[in-house]
Computed example of a mutant assay.
Amino acid sequence: MARTEEEWLHIARYVRHAVNKVGPETLPLCLPGEPHECGQNGYQHAMLRAAELKAVAHHLIEEGAATHEEGALFAEQVYQGRLSALREKAPQNV
């Protein structure tokens, strides 16, 4: 799916807020002029924040699971099932 620079910036901001809501550490919010002041574009910021959210979510699973097997169930099986469902719904990049 093709997105505009502005759409990527909105996504980056939303994902950063999500990381701040569930993460053990708070990320600074984008400042006026970002992401361009740091040399990145909106797409790069969105990808960075998405990777941070994925790491925070995995960390929550590891810390919250009662057993290693339960952690693996959520971190692998449930995750892969949801990812597959999202991929099926997503428009094809052509």
Rank of each mutant, 00 (worst) to 15 (best):
Arg3Met: 11
Thr4Trp: 02
Glu5Phe: 04
Glu7Asp: 11
Leu9Glu: 01
Leu9Ser: 00
His10Pro: 00
His10Cys: 12
Ile11Cys: 11
Ile11Thr: 07
Ala12Tyr: 01
Ala12Cys: 08
Ala12Trp: 00
Arg13Asp: 08
Arg13Tyr: 03
Arg13Pro: 02
Tyr14Phe: 08
Val15Asn: 02
Arg16Pro: 04
Asn20Cys: 02
Asn20Glu: 08
Lys21Phe: 05
Lys21Cys: 08
Pro24Gly: 15
Pro24Tyr: 04
Pro24Gln: 13
Glu25Ala: 07
Thr26Gly: 01
Thr26Gln: 12
Pro28Gly: 06
Pro28Asn: 03
Pro28Asp: 12
Leu29Lys: 06
Cys30Gln: 12
Cys30Asn: 05
Leu31Phe: 14
Leu31Arg: 15
Leu31Tyr: 10
Glu34Ile: 06
Glu34Pro: 01
Glu34Leu: 13
Glu34Met: 14
Pro35Trp: 02
Pro35Tyr: 02
Pro35Lys: 01
His36Ser: 11
Glu37Val: 12
Gly39Pro: 07
Asn41Val: 07
Asn41Gly: 05
Asn41Leu: 08
Gly42Glu: 04
Gly42Asp: 01
Gly42Ala: 03
His45Lys: 07
Ala46Glu: 01
Ala46Cys: 09
Ala46Trp: 01
Met47Ile: 08
Met47Lys: 14
Leu48Asn: 10
Leu48Lys: 10
Ala50Gln: 05
Ala51Leu: 12
Glu52Val: 02
Leu53Cys: 11
Lys54Trp: 11
Lys54Met: 12
Ala55Ser: 13
Val56Asp: 07
His58Ser: 01
Leu60His: 05
Ile61Gln: 04
Glu62Ala: 10
Glu63Leu: 06
Ala65Pro: 00
Ala65Leu: 10
His68Gly: 07
Glu69Tyr: 04
Glu69Asp: 15
Glu69Met: 06
Glu70Phe: 05
Gly71Asn: 06
Gly71Ala: 09
Ala72Tyr: 05
Leu73Gln: 07
Leu73Lys: 07
Leu73Ile: 02
Leu73Glu: 04
Phe74Gly: 00
Glu76Ile: 15
Gln77Asn: 14
Val78Ala: 05
Tyr79His: 07
Tyr79Phe: 11
Tyr79Pro: 00
Gln80Ala: 15
Gly81Leu: 14
Leu83Cys: 13
Ser84Phe: 14
Ser84Ile: 09
Ser84Trp: 10
Ala85Cys: 11
Leu86Gly: 12
Glu88Asn: 15
Lys89His: 09
Lys89Thr: 08
Pro91Ala: 11
Gln92Leu: 13
Asn93Tyr: 15
Asn93Asp: 14
Asn93Pro: 10
Val94Trp: 13
